[in-house]
């Protein structure tokens, strides 16, 4: 199992290196290969090559589906927050709400909390076993989050 993660880490590092370099001579590619091997060795020694550090068990297609949905949500939330910023009266009503999260593992919770933070209008303050404490810019944003559609989508993606 660990071997799979090492191979996957090496391949993604190699792709990254080839894309960033843009120069494909024998010397440079072999130097790149050497550094990839070194990094995989060091990551192995640091014990960070595992299911959490390199989560290829998430379904790839569902990640892109989720990103597309998240992008739509981000655009809508941005328009709302921009309207509030530019409104002369500054119509904000900050509140703190507690959101239930139904993800089985830590990785799912991290994805959910980061998605909440990435959406303007809501920032996750504290994450623990049972739920997430969220600071919302407006009551509407908090209500949208409480409906739990994002929670459902993340859970769907992070369970096999």
């Amino acid at each position: 199992m660990k071997m799979n993660h090492e191979i996957s880490l090496g391949l993604s590092l190699l792709t990254l290196w080839l894309l960033l370099s843009g120069l494909y001579t024998a010397l440079l590619v072999s130097l790149g290969l050497a550094s990839v091997v070194l990094v995989v060795y060091l990551a192995n020694r640091m014990d960070v090559v595992d299911r959490e550090g390199h989560p290829f068990h998430l379904k790839l297609m569902s990640i892109f589906g989720y990103w597309a949905w998240l992008l739509k949500e981000i655009v809508l939330a941005n328009l709302d927050v921009s309207r509030r910023i530019l409104h002369p009266d500054l119509p904000i009503s900050p509140s703190i709400v507690r959101i239930q999260c139904t993800q089985p593992d830590d990785l799912g919770k991290v994805i959910y909390a980061n998605s909440i933070t990435l959406t303007p209008g809501t920032v996750s303050l504290e994450v623990d076993e049972r739920g997430i404490e969220v600071h919302a810019l407006s009551k509407e944003a908090a209500e949208t989050l409480k409906k739990g559609e994002m929670d459902r989508r993340v859970t769907e993606m992070s369970t096999l």
Binding site: I85, I92, P94, L118, T119, H135
Partner: peptide, 24 residues
């Protein structure tokens, strides 16, 4: 987003304004 960071009244509301710049 930068204007929001100036206009918002306290720290936690400024976080939301900053994320407008950082996302969209």
């Amino acid at each position: 987003g930068a204007i929001g960071v100036i206009r918002m009244p306290e720290f936690y509301t400024r976080l939301h304004a900053a994320s407008v710049t950082e996302t969209l």
